[in-house]
Amino acid sequence: MSNEEIKSAVIASTGTAGIVQQSPKISAKDFCAYFGKFKALNNINIDVPEKKVVAIIGPSGCGKSTFLRSINRMHEVVGGTITGSLTLDGEEIMKSDAVMIRRKIGMVFQKPNPFPTMSIFNNVIAGYKLNGHHNKKNLAEIVEKSLRQAALWDEVKDKLNKSGADISGGQQQRLCIARTIAINPEVILMDEPASALDPISTAKIEELIFELKKDYTIVIVTHNTQQAARVSDSTAFFYMGELIEYSGTKKMFTSPEKKQTEDYITGRFG
């Protein structure tokens, strides 16, 4: 994709030309990712604007999760490598400290993964404590605020001392979101956050994403195209490790430019 196209995509996604002047929150240029010798992503160019929701769609194995996991350097935890440029606020992510990057860029995983040995309270505060904060009064405040933001407070406020594994799957996923919010990140990455959940919990997560984009930049990977259409401002379609199309969600789902995109969205493959 050319720069022009990206620009138009951003304009379409934001609806106003003014925001384009703002530099992108996350930007990938000629970005490639590898597992050993296998090239999982090839020459990805994409800009993620601040405080917007970008959805990444595509069939299984297209590299969408790999891209997401490269952004907060989780790709290297499983032994992957990358080339090209990937920046957060203009700074190279690979040159920054991985731990600091992960505190700025939170992540919600496909399967809810609360810490089973910790209470709900300690789950929320786990990441915050890692930063070396231990002020007791402060902690309770942050837990409440994070749980409220994750729309979970009313359901768990009476059982904060229960294990994080003792609540339902949908609640666990929102607990994981609260845990991510508690470290006060700038970006939240979501890797198919609702794929393991029932429809009601999914709807709650989607509503939550809508609320969260007021404060955070969100990149969400989903294999549910309807979900992408519902929650995102712009959508990127990945196929076989390539970025096929990136434009405003409305445009993408009404008049996609590429044949492949149309085929995927209408369910003809994938």
Binding site: V77, R102, R103, F115, N131
Partner: peptide, 13 residues
């Protein structure tokens, strides 16, 4: 592995 992932994800060393 998900447990390690969760911990790395919130910025654990």
């Amino acid at each position: 592995f998900t447990l390690r992932e969760a911990a790395y994800g919130i910025g654990a060393t």
